[in-house]
């Protein structure tokens, strides 16, 4: 087995000297790889055996057995719900949609306990068993461990002691203190942002009845600076939410998804909260029946 990238091996094997290498680089690439994907500074070569070699210049950075090829980028699975994204501006680690949703759920209704101290536990609280089950499903997918469920006062709690997951979530900033969180936008692509918001809205969003057929979507948080990050995430994928507002009486903060963005929010983000889902279904039915302005007219 020779060292270096396939292009290096090919060049060496066929005595392609450095002077000629630059001129014949493309030809060598073609012969060494089944396919070459060019991302500017980074390139990805697909070998005959179907492996992927990521290199910068002629230096192989890593090899991968599988990849998800998207329109203008390529994603390589790493460990614990993380992907390496290679795109025109460079490379970065991003969260899988499953891990992003898990982080959103933890930001809204979870905790890393204690924030300082000995035991490393991750908790998720919810009054809905459906959300607890969704949380466990995501946790198993990402960390291959299953949190146990117990009953709290008026709510269910899923808890697990897992150092590896604890430090991983802590590094992401999934929960930075009681009711405090960081939206890891630097590690989220568009699918990740939507998944994160789905998790967060399932926990801290509300769907309130508004008139006879309509609904109003709100997201609330104790801390305004954290909610500003949620707002930034919404704006980044093209939503135009309200500004973060303060309820002066109780010192909590909220933002609203305006009527113009509501259908898109329901269809592209949605929620796993059964109460939300029920109201979304009623609302969409009214929309389909043309009871809302902009809704589809009745068929026939």
């Amino acid at each position: 087995m020779g060292g270096g990238s396939l292009i290096d091996q090919y060049a060496s094997r066929f005595r392609e000297g450095k002077l000629f290498l630059t001129e014949r680089e493309k030809e060598c690439y073609k012969k060494a790889y089944r396919e070459i994907m060019d991302f500017g500074e980074y390139k990805v070569g697909v070998t005959e055996s179907g492996e992927y070699e990521l290199f910068r210049g002629n230096d192989v950075i890593s090899t991968f057995a599988e990849a998800r090829i998207k329109e203008d980028r390529i994603l390589f699975p790493l460990s614990h719900g993380t992907l390496l994204e290679v795109y025109s501006s460079g490379i970065r680690e991003i969260l899988t949609p499953e891990k992003a949703e898990l982080c959103g759920l933890i930001a809204a209704e979870g905790s890393l306990s204690p924030y300082e101290g000995e035991s490393r536990q991750i908790f998720f609280h919810s009054a809905d068993m459906e959300l607890i089950e969704r949380y466990i499903e995501l946790f198993e997918k990402v960390y291959n461990r299953s949190p146990h469920i117990y009953c709290g006062k008026g709510e269910f709690i899923a808890g697990i002691k897992d150092k590896r997951a604890y430090y991983d979530l802590r590094e992401i900033g999934a929960k930075t203190g009681p009711y405090r969180y960081h939206v890891p936008l630097e590690h989220l692509d568009e699918d990740g942002i939507k998944a994160y918001l789905r998790g967060f809205f399932s926990g801290d969003g509300s769907v309130a009845r508004h008139g006879r057929y309509s609904i109003k979507l709100r997201i609330s948080s104790k801390y305004g600076d954290c909610l500003e990050e949620v707002r930034e995430a919404l704006v980044k994928i093209g939503f135009q939410p309200s500004e973060v507002r303060l309820d002066k009486t109780y010192g909590t903060h909220y933002l609203e998804i305006y009527a113009q963005d509501r259908i898109r929010f329901i269809k592209e983000i949605g929620s796993y909260s059964p109460a939300h889902v029920e109201k979304f279904e009623e609302f969409l039915k009214a929309y389909e029946e043309g009871k809302l302005k902009g809704g589809r007219p009745k068929k026939g």
């Binding site: 508004h210 309509s214 305004g224 309820d247 010192g251 609203e256 302005k293």
Partner: peptide, 27 residues
């Protein structure tokens, strides 16, 4: 703050103007 329309209703949301961009002591 926002206006929503159904087949027979105009739903008008109203917010206190000073609630915008205000920071609580916890902010």
């Amino acid at each position: 703050s926002d206006v929503d329309v159904t087949e027979d209703e105009v739903l008008v949301d109203l917010v206190a103007s000073e609630s915008k961009n205000l920071r609580s002591e916890n902010y």
